[in-house]
Simulated assay, not measured.
Amino acid sequence: MPLDTDAVLDRRQLRRKLTFWRVAAGLVAIAGLAAVGFFGARSAGYFSARHVARIEVKGLITQNDEMRRMIEAIGRDDNVRALVVNIDSPGGTVAGSEALYRALREVAAKKPTVAVVDGMAASGGYIAAIATDHIVSRETSITGSIGVIVQFPNVVQLLQNVGVKVEAVRSTPLKATPSGLEPTSPEALAALREIVTDSYQWFQRLVKERRGLDDEQMRVASDGRAFSGVRAREMRLVDTIGGEPEARGWLADRGVSRDLAIRTYRPARRGSLPFVNAVAAAVVDAVGLSDLGERLRASAIVAGIERSALDGLLVVWQPPTP
Protein backbone atom coordinates (compact mmCIF):
# COMPACT_ATOMS: atom_id res chain seq x y z
CA MET A 1 0.00 0.00 0.00
CA PRO A 2 1.62 3.32 -1.07
CA LEU A 3 2.79 5.68 1.69
CA ASP A 4 1.02 8.98 2.03
CA THR A 5 2.85 12.24 1.38
CA ASP A 6 3.31 13.16 5.07
CA ALA A 7 5.02 9.85 5.85
CA VAL A 8 7.44 10.25 2.95
CA LEU A 9 8.31 13.76 4.03
CA ASP A 10 8.88 12.62 7.65
CA ARG A 11 11.25 9.89 6.52
CA ARG A 12 13.23 12.27 4.33
CA GLN A 13 13.52 14.76 7.21
CA LEU A 14 14.68 12.02 9.60
CA ARG A 15 17.26 10.84 7.06
CA ARG A 16 18.60 14.39 6.70
CA LYS A 17 18.92 14.74 10.50
CA LEU A 18 20.76 11.43 10.80
CA THR A 19 23.13 12.43 8.01
CA PHE A 20 23.80 15.79 9.65
CA TRP A 21 24.66 14.26 13.02
CA ARG A 22 26.85 11.59 11.44
CA VAL A 23 28.83 14.22 9.56
CA ALA A 24 29.05 16.40 12.69
CA ALA A 25 30.29 13.48 14.79
CA GLY A 26 32.90 12.65 12.14
CA LEU A 27 34.14 16.24 12.03
CA VAL A 28 34.38 16.39 15.83
CA ALA A 29 36.38 13.13 15.88
CA ILE A 30 38.72 14.39 13.16
CA ALA A 31 39.20 17.70 14.97
CA GLY A 32 39.91 15.88 18.24
CA LEU A 33 42.49 13.60 16.64
CA ALA A 34 44.11 16.57 14.92
CA ALA A 35 44.32 18.48 18.21
CA VAL A 36 45.79 15.53 20.07
CA GLY A 37 48.21 14.93 17.22
CA PHE A 38 49.27 18.57 17.23
CA PHE A 39 49.92 18.67 20.97
CA GLY A 40 51.64 15.30 20.81
CA ALA A 41 53.87 16.46 17.99
CA ARG A 42 54.65 19.65 19.88
CA SER A 43 55.57 17.58 22.95
CA ALA A 44 57.85 15.48 20.75
CA GLY A 45 59.64 18.61 19.59
CA TYR A 46 57.90 19.56 16.35
CA PHE A 47 56.78 23.16 15.69
CA SER A 48 59.19 24.26 18.43
CA ALA A 49 60.34 27.83 19.00
CA ARG A 50 63.53 28.79 20.75
CA HIS A 51 63.48 27.58 24.35
CA VAL A 52 65.49 26.16 27.23
CA ALA A 53 65.36 22.40 27.61
CA ARG A 54 64.97 20.72 30.98
CA ILE A 55 65.65 17.04 31.64
CA GLU A 56 65.20 15.13 34.89
CA VAL A 57 67.66 12.61 36.29
CA LYS A 58 65.70 10.89 39.03
CA GLY A 59 66.09 7.61 40.86
CA LEU A 60 68.66 4.98 40.05
CA ILE A 61 70.85 5.55 37.00
CA THR A 62 71.24 2.59 34.65
CA GLN A 63 71.96 2.16 30.95
CA ASN A 64 69.14 4.00 29.19
CA ASP A 65 69.32 4.29 25.40
CA GLU A 66 66.11 6.32 25.26
CA MET A 67 67.58 8.95 27.60
CA ARG A 68 70.83 9.03 25.63
CA ARG A 69 69.05 9.51 22.30
CA MET A 70 66.87 12.25 23.78
CA ILE A 71 69.93 14.13 25.07
CA GLU A 72 71.65 13.74 21.70
CA ALA A 73 68.56 15.20 19.98
CA ILE A 74 68.61 18.16 22.37
CA GLY A 75 72.22 18.78 21.42
CA ARG A 76 71.37 18.79 17.70
CA ASP A 77 68.30 21.03 18.02
CA ASP A 78 69.25 24.64 17.23
CA ASN A 79 66.00 25.83 18.87
CA VAL A 80 67.28 24.61 22.23
CA ARG A 81 69.40 27.47 23.56
CA ALA A 82 70.49 25.82 26.82
CA LEU A 83 69.97 22.73 28.97
CA VAL A 84 68.92 22.53 32.63
CA VAL A 85 69.50 19.14 34.29
CA ASN A 86 67.36 18.60 37.38
CA ILE A 87 68.94 15.87 39.51
CA ASP A 88 67.49 13.89 42.38
CA SER A 89 69.44 10.62 42.30
CA PRO A 90 71.57 8.52 44.65
CA GLY A 91 73.53 7.18 41.67
CA GLY A 92 73.44 3.78 40.02
CA THR A 93 75.69 1.64 37.88
CA VAL A 94 79.14 2.82 36.82
CA ALA A 95 78.46 2.10 33.15
CA GLY A 96 75.08 3.87 33.19
CA SER A 97 76.58 6.90 34.93
CA GLU A 98 79.43 7.07 32.43
CA ALA A 99 77.04 6.91 29.47
CA LEU A 100 74.94 9.72 30.92
CA TYR A 101 78.05 11.80 31.63
CA ARG A 102 79.32 11.46 28.06
CA ALA A 103 75.94 12.36 26.55
CA LEU A 104 75.72 15.50 28.70
CA ARG A 105 79.27 16.54 27.89
CA GLU A 106 78.46 16.39 24.17
CA VAL A 107 75.60 18.83 24.72
CA ALA A 108 77.81 21.06 26.90
CA ALA A 109 80.25 21.36 24.00
CA LYS A 110 77.48 23.05 21.96
CA LYS A 111 75.37 25.07 24.41
CA PRO A 112 75.32 26.17 28.08
CA THR A 113 74.37 23.44 30.55
CA VAL A 114 73.55 23.79 34.24
CA ALA A 115 72.65 21.23 36.90
CA VAL A 116 70.10 21.85 39.65
CA VAL A 117 70.39 19.47 42.61
CA ASP A 118 66.82 19.27 43.88
CA GLY A 119 67.31 16.70 46.63
CA MET A 120 70.29 14.51 45.96
CA ALA A 121 73.14 14.20 43.49
CA ALA A 122 75.24 11.54 45.13
CA SER A 123 77.81 9.24 43.56
CA GLY A 124 76.53 8.53 40.01
CA GLY A 125 74.11 11.44 40.41
CA TYR A 126 77.10 13.67 41.09
CA ILE A 127 78.80 12.33 37.95
CA ALA A 128 75.79 13.66 36.02
CA ALA A 129 76.09 17.02 37.79
CA ILE A 130 79.79 17.54 36.98
CA ALA A 131 79.04 16.87 33.32
CA THR A 132 77.39 20.32 33.20
CA ASP A 133 79.11 23.71 33.19
CA HIS A 134 77.61 24.94 36.46
CA ILE A 135 76.07 23.24 39.52
CA VAL A 136 73.33 24.80 41.66
CA SER A 137 72.38 23.03 44.89
CA ARG A 138 69.96 23.52 47.74
CA GLU A 139 71.55 24.16 51.11
CA THR A 140 70.21 20.86 52.40
CA SER A 141 70.71 18.77 49.28
CA ILE A 142 72.94 15.71 49.53
CA THR A 143 75.86 15.47 47.15
CA GLY A 144 79.30 13.93 46.83
CA SER A 145 79.64 10.27 47.92
CA ILE A 146 82.58 9.92 45.54
CA GLY A 147 83.38 6.24 45.46
CA VAL A 148 82.63 2.83 43.94
CA ILE A 149 81.22 -0.28 45.58
CA VAL A 150 80.48 -3.86 44.59
CA GLN A 151 78.55 -6.15 46.91
CA PHE A 152 77.63 -9.80 46.79
CA PRO A 153 76.06 -12.10 49.39
CA ASN A 154 78.10 -15.04 50.64
CA VAL A 155 75.71 -17.86 51.50
CA VAL A 156 78.28 -20.60 52.11
CA GLN A 157 77.34 -21.08 55.75
CA LEU A 158 73.64 -21.14 54.90
CA LEU A 159 74.18 -23.84 52.26
CA GLN A 160 76.24 -25.89 54.69
CA ASN A 161 73.47 -25.68 57.26
CA VAL A 162 70.94 -27.13 54.81
CA GLY A 163 73.37 -29.72 53.46
CA VAL A 164 73.97 -28.22 50.00
CA LYS A 165 77.40 -28.12 48.38
CA VAL A 166 77.91 -26.30 45.07
CA GLU A 167 80.50 -27.77 42.72
CA ALA A 168 82.12 -25.81 39.86
CA VAL A 169 84.49 -26.69 37.03
CA ARG A 170 86.44 -23.62 35.89
CA SER A 171 88.79 -23.03 33.01
CA THR A 172 90.97 -20.93 35.35
CA PRO A 173 90.85 -20.40 39.14
CA LEU A 174 89.50 -16.83 38.88
CA LYS A 175 86.74 -17.54 36.36
CA ALA A 176 83.32 -16.39 37.72
CA THR A 177 84.70 -15.46 41.12
CA PRO A 178 83.66 -14.41 43.63
CA SER A 179 80.41 -16.34 43.38
CA GLY A 180 79.02 -16.18 46.90
CA LEU A 181 78.36 -19.91 46.77
CA GLU A 182 81.81 -20.89 47.99
CA PRO A 183 84.51 -19.34 50.15
CA THR A 184 86.10 -16.35 48.42
CA SER A 185 89.82 -16.71 47.84
CA PRO A 186 92.24 -13.83 48.50
CA GLU A 187 93.11 -13.86 44.80
CA ALA A 188 89.47 -13.37 43.81
CA LEU A 189 89.07 -10.48 46.24
CA ALA A 190 92.25 -8.89 44.94
CA ALA A 191 91.03 -9.15 41.32
CA LEU A 192 87.70 -7.57 42.26
CA ARG A 193 89.41 -4.81 44.23
CA GLU A 194 91.51 -3.99 41.16
CA ILE A 195 88.35 -3.39 39.12
CA VAL A 196 86.84 -1.24 41.87
CA THR A 197 90.08 0.77 42.13
CA ASP A 198 90.18 1.41 38.38
CA SER A 199 86.62 2.75 38.41
CA TYR A 200 87.28 4.79 41.55
CA GLN A 201 90.34 6.42 40.00
CA TRP A 202 88.29 7.23 36.89
CA PHE A 203 85.66 8.89 39.11
CA GLN A 204 88.34 10.87 40.98
CA ARG A 205 89.91 12.01 37.73
CA LEU A 206 86.56 13.32 36.47
CA VAL A 207 85.96 15.29 39.66
CA LYS A 208 89.49 16.70 39.76
CA GLU A 209 89.35 17.84 36.13
CA ARG A 210 85.80 19.19 36.15
CA ARG A 211 85.96 20.92 39.56
CA GLY A 212 89.59 22.03 39.49
CA LEU A 213 90.51 20.53 42.87
CA ASP A 214 94.05 20.00 44.10
CA ASP A 215 95.31 16.73 45.61
CA GLU A 216 94.48 17.65 49.21
CA GLN A 217 90.99 18.83 48.31
CA MET A 218 90.43 15.61 46.38
CA ARG A 219 91.63 13.52 49.31
CA VAL A 220 88.97 15.04 51.57
CA ALA A 221 86.19 15.11 48.97
CA SER A 222 86.65 11.55 47.70
CA ASP A 223 86.67 9.52 50.91
CA GLY A 224 83.16 8.30 50.18
CA ARG A 225 81.25 10.73 52.37
CA ALA A 226 78.14 12.58 51.28
CA PHE A 227 77.94 16.32 51.97
CA SER A 228 75.20 18.87 52.42
CA GLY A 229 74.86 21.55 49.78
CA VAL A 230 76.41 24.17 52.07
CA ARG A 231 79.42 21.98 52.82
CA ALA A 232 79.74 21.01 49.15
CA ARG A 233 79.84 24.70 48.21
CA GLU A 234 82.68 25.29 50.67
CA MET A 235 84.55 22.33 49.15
CA ARG A 236 83.94 23.60 45.60
CA LEU A 237 81.93 20.52 44.68
CA VAL A 238 79.05 22.82 43.66
CA ASP A 239 79.04 26.44 42.48
CA THR A 240 75.92 28.16 43.80
CA ILE A 241 73.30 27.69 46.49
CA GLY A 242 69.77 27.98 45.16
CA GLY A 243 67.41 26.40 42.67
CA GLU A 244 66.18 26.83 39.13
CA PRO A 245 65.88 30.66 39.34
CA GLU A 246 69.61 30.83 40.12
CA ALA A 247 70.28 28.46 37.25
CA ARG A 248 68.33 30.73 34.89
CA GLY A 249 70.30 33.70 36.23
CA TRP A 250 73.56 31.95 35.39
CA LEU A 251 72.26 31.20 31.90
CA ALA A 252 71.18 34.84 31.47
CA ASP A 253 74.75 35.91 32.17
CA ARG A 254 75.71 33.79 29.17
CA GLY A 255 73.20 35.32 26.79
CA VAL A 256 70.27 32.94 27.32
CA SER A 257 67.28 35.19 27.90
CA ARG A 258 65.11 34.65 30.97
CA ASP A 259 62.10 35.25 28.69
CA LEU A 260 62.66 31.98 26.85
CA ALA A 261 60.19 29.28 27.82
CA ILE A 262 61.53 26.21 29.55
CA ARG A 263 60.34 22.86 28.23
CA THR A 264 60.67 19.54 30.04
CA TYR A 265 61.86 16.65 27.89
CA ARG A 266 61.21 13.05 28.89
CA PRO A 267 62.58 9.96 27.16
CA ALA A 268 60.23 7.64 25.34
CA ARG A 269 59.09 4.69 27.42
CA ARG A 270 61.11 1.56 26.74
CA GLY A 271 59.34 -0.68 24.31
CA SER A 272 56.81 1.98 23.27
CA LEU A 273 56.34 4.07 20.17
CA PRO A 274 57.77 7.58 20.73
CA PHE A 275 54.95 9.37 18.92
CA VAL A 276 52.26 7.37 20.70
CA ASN A 277 53.99 8.14 24.00
CA ALA A 278 54.05 11.87 23.16
CA VAL A 279 50.35 11.85 22.22
CA ALA A 280 49.45 10.03 25.42
CA ALA A 281 51.44 12.55 27.46
CA ALA A 282 49.61 15.40 25.76
CA VAL A 283 46.21 13.86 26.55
CA VAL A 284 47.19 13.33 30.20
CA ASP A 285 48.39 16.94 30.46
CA ALA A 286 45.16 18.17 28.89
CA VAL A 287 43.03 16.54 31.60
CA GLY A 288 45.23 17.81 34.41
CA LEU A 289 47.00 14.54 35.28
CA SER A 290 50.54 15.55 34.29
CA ASP A 291 51.93 14.36 37.65
CA LEU A 292 50.45 10.88 37.35
CA GLY A 293 53.37 9.38 35.46
CA GLU A 294 55.90 10.95 37.78
CA ARG A 295 54.13 9.55 40.82
CA LEU A 296 54.20 6.08 39.31
CA ARG A 297 57.88 6.33 38.40
CA ALA A 298 58.64 7.46 41.92
CA SER A 299 56.58 4.73 43.55
CA ALA A 300 58.20 2.14 45.78
CA ILE A 301 57.16 -0.63 43.39
CA VAL A 302 59.06 0.86 40.47
CA ALA A 303 62.02 1.72 42.69
CA GLY A 304 62.10 -1.88 43.91
CA ILE A 305 62.09 -3.21 40.35
CA GLU A 306 64.91 -0.87 39.36
CA ARG A 307 66.92 -1.75 42.45
CA SER A 308 66.59 -5.48 41.78
CA ALA A 309 68.00 -4.92 38.26
CA LEU A 310 71.27 -3.43 39.53
CA ASP A 311 74.26 -5.65 38.96
CA GLY A 312 78.02 -5.17 38.84
CA LEU A 313 79.92 -2.04 39.90
CA LEU A 314 77.84 0.66 41.54
CA VAL A 315 78.36 4.37 42.15
CA VAL A 316 75.45 4.79 44.52
CA TRP A 317 74.75 6.32 47.91
CA GLN A 318 72.26 4.58 50.12
CA PRO A 319 71.59 5.03 53.83
CA PRO A 320 71.88 1.80 55.82
CA THR A 321 68.63 -0.14 56.12
CA PRO A 322 67.66 -2.39 59.02
Rank of each mutant, 00 (worst) to 15 (best):
G243Q: 07
A247Y: 01
G243V: 01
T264G: 03
L260I: 07
E246R: 12
P267Q: 11
G249Q: 13
W250N: 00
P274Q: 11
R263F: 11
V238E: 01
D239Q: 07
R258Y: 05
G243K: 05
R269S: 11
G243I: 01
D259A: 13
D259G: 07
G249V: 03
S272A: 12
L273I: 14
D259V: 08
P267C: 08
P267A: 10
R269H: 10
R270N: 09
I262C: 03
L273G: 14
G271D: 14
D239N: 13
W250T: 06
P245D: 08
S257R: 13
S257E: 13
V238H: 01
G271F: 10
R258K: 15
V238S: 01
P267N: 13
R269A: 12
A247H: 05
D253K: 14
A261Q: 15
S272V: 11
G243F: 04
A252R: 12
G243D: 09
R270K: 15
A252L: 05
R248Q: 08
R258Q: 12
Y265S: 07
R258S: 10
W250V: 04
R269W: 09
A268P: 07
T264R: 14
D239I: 02
D259Y: 06
G255C: 06
G249R: 13
V256C: 06
P274R: 12
R254K: 14
L251A: 02
G271A: 11
E246K: 12
D253I: 00
T264P: 02
A247P: 07
L273D: 15
I241E: 02
P274M: 05
D253S: 05
R263Q: 10
S257H: 12
Y265D: 10
S257A: 14
